[in-house]
Computed example of a mutant assay.
Amino acid sequence: MSFPGNRSELPGGIRRLRFPHAAPSRSTLKLEEAWHEFVPRDQWDDRLAEGMQAADLGAAPGGWTWQLVARGMNVFAIDNGPMDKALMASGLVEHLREDGFVWQPPERLDWLVCDIVDKPSRVTAMVQRWLVQRWCREAVFNLKLPMKRRWEEVSRCLSGLEASLSEAGVRAEIRCRHLYHDREEVTVHVRLLD
């Protein structure tokens, strides 16, 4: 039993995606599923377009970066760890061995994606800074959930993000889902509306 508007229309509620063998990690499916969930398919050519600029914070070994490159985007891959060699050979990736929590883009980007393993509050605060500064137009990031008080932690992070954006005069649409390819985490999408 489910409520209209709060259920998946997919068989069994699961979006079945095929793992691309060229991708360096299975985490690539998390970002692909997020796009299917948060970006209407008829808007992909405009919002996930070739030539766009993106940053992947916590990029190594490149699962999420692979999705961006597959769409023809230019990517700043921020991580102290090594990136997949085949992915780097694309010519679309600039790998910077820096801390994703402090790195700043040289210009406004189209996308920020982040799958850093850290406290949800710390990840949310970092993404909040990006959005208040308008360093990106859209963001997809994961919040790794603590073992206890999960609902309270996610609610606190999202309400804090919403309040901060409102206080800064930033209009945005915020959505959060626990996707099939997520494990002990939820995926958040934010799109700036101005």
Results as ranks from 00 to 15, higher is better:
28 T>L: 10
128 Q>G: 09
139 A>V: 03
189 H>S: 11
17 L>A: 00
84 D>T: 01
48 L>K: 01
105 P>W: 02
32 E>I: 05
190 V>Y: 04
139 A>C: 05
20 P>F: 02
107 E>H: 15
142 N>F: 02
92 L>R: 03
100 G>A: 04
151 W>D: 15
177 R>N: 10
174 I>F: 07
36 H>K: 09
1 M>N: 13
87 L>E: 01
144 K>P: 04
56 D>P: 00
36 H>G: 08
62 G>I: 02
90 S>N: 07
17 L>I: 00
36 H>T: 04
31 L>W: 01
108 R>Q: 14
94 E>W: 08
133 Q>A: 15
101 F>E: 05
34 A>L: 00
16 R>F: 05
70 A>I: 02
67 Q>V: 07
76 F>A: 10
115 D>T: 03
152 E>P: 09
155 S>F: 10
190 V>L: 05
15 R>G: 05
167 E>N: 13
73 M>F: 02
119 K>F: 08
171 R>A: 14
182 D>A: 13
123 V>Y: 03
9 E>R: 15
57 L>R: 01
189 H>T: 03
176 C>Y: 04
119 K>G: 07
68 L>S: 02
24 P>S: 08
96 L>Y: 07
49 A>T: 04
132 V>F: 11
14 I>P: 01
37 E>Q: 14
84 D>C: 08
135 W>H: 10
117 V>H: 07
39 V>M: 04
133 Q>P: 12
184 E>L: 12
131 L>T: 02
38 F>N: 00
19 F>W: 14
153 E>R: 11
1 M>E: 12
22 A>K: 15
23 A>Q: 08
160 G>V: 06
147 M>H: 08
55 A>V: 13
105 P>Y: 02
65 T>N: 06
147 M>G: 11
152 E>L: 13
132 V>C: 10
181 H>T: 11
96 L>H: 13
64 W>R: 02
110 D>S: 12
157 C>G: 07
77 A>C: 07
174 I>H: 05
63 G>L: 09
155 S>T: 14
57 L>Q: 01
15 R>D: 13
35 W>G: 01
164 S>V: 11
68 L>K: 01
114 C>A: 09
179 L>V: 09
62 G>R: 00
52 M>W: 02
166 S>I: 09
101 F>I: 08
73 M>P: 00
111 W>H: 03
112 L>C: 06
76 F>D: 02
32 E>Y: 06
59 A>D: 03
18 R>H: 12
21 H>L: 13
166 S>W: 08
98 E>Y: 10
154 V>Q: 06
158 L>N: 11
3 F>S: 13
70 A>Q: 15
147 M>E: 10
23 A>T: 09
105 P>N: 03
183 R>N: 09
10 L>K: 15
136 C>P: 03
163 A>D: 12
148 K>F: 12
193 L>A: 05
35 W>E: 04
115 D>L: 06
59 A>G: 06
160 G>C: 12
5 G>W: 02
189 H>V: 01
19 F>R: 10
8 S>G: 11
8 S>V: 00
154 V>L: 08
182 D>F: 08
21 H>R: 15
131 L>M: 07
106 P>A: 03
190 V>R: 04
91 G>W: 08
119 K>V: 08
70 A>L: 03
158 L>P: 10
60 A>I: 01
176 C>S: 10
98 E>M: 15
50 E>V: 11
